[in-house]
Amino acid sequence: MPALLSVEALHWRINNKDILKNISFNVNKGEILGIIGPNGAGKTSLLNCILNHQKSFTGTIKFRAKNVKEYSAKQLAQHFAVVAQKTVPIFQLSVFDVVRMGLLPHKSMFALDSSYDHRQILLAIEKVGLSDLKNNQYNQLSGGEQQRVLVARALVQKAQVLVLDEPTNHLDVYYQHQILQLIKSLNITVIMTIHDLNLAAQYCQRLLLLDQGKIIANDITNNVLEPKQLSQVFKLNCLREQTPNSSFPRVYFQLASDTGSGEKVND
């Protein structure tokens, strides 16, 4: 089966600096791909290229075998839904208002909301567990609730790929797991950048490890979270252990001067 999204020899250079270098990878339908790497590795830039928000790259990015540059912005919004790191609402938008925005890529100029649209919005809000808050103001919700509202908007958008940029930033442990569990339960293709490697280990099927704009590893989660590899990229000693009663590993980092138990691999 051909890949849903394929990136081939992607290179993006700006202000005489190579941000992304020779990036190639595929994303299959239904998989959750995590993009990991240190700050400045090019994770968000890669998302921007995939979404065609950044157009000056070379190489090709194909979605369903067609170059993303051949899609109009509206067509891309019909296929890709984005849950941004942080939104800056103005005025008192309700949860319903924000989720309703997901209709935009599917509506013609003067089209009004139908009763079907209305039901879809309420269903999406219900699916993310916010039915009781549907009339509440979006900017008065917690960070985790706001992320869920944006996921509900993505559901209304009926996109095939959900793109998330650091969805767990600013969230406490409970909300981190709640949002990722929700995303996993949707059974759609997900591409997300994520800093927390243990959350990535738990929720992503495949990881893309980036460093200085290059792909260091692209494999199933277990193979990418190799202590030696992570130590080189993050410049910290990395320890790894298997989580009891589960299939995913846990990784820990420590400065070279620190001492601790575990398998020290980069001495």
Binding site: L51, A81, A84, P89, L93, R100, M101, L104, P105
Partner: peptide, 22 residues
Amino acid sequence: LACHRQIDALLLGDESAVSLGV
């Protein structure tokens, strides 16, 4: 009124509006 949905999308920020195809 022809652009009402696009203008709504801006209420959540430029980035959000761009991601909706605006």
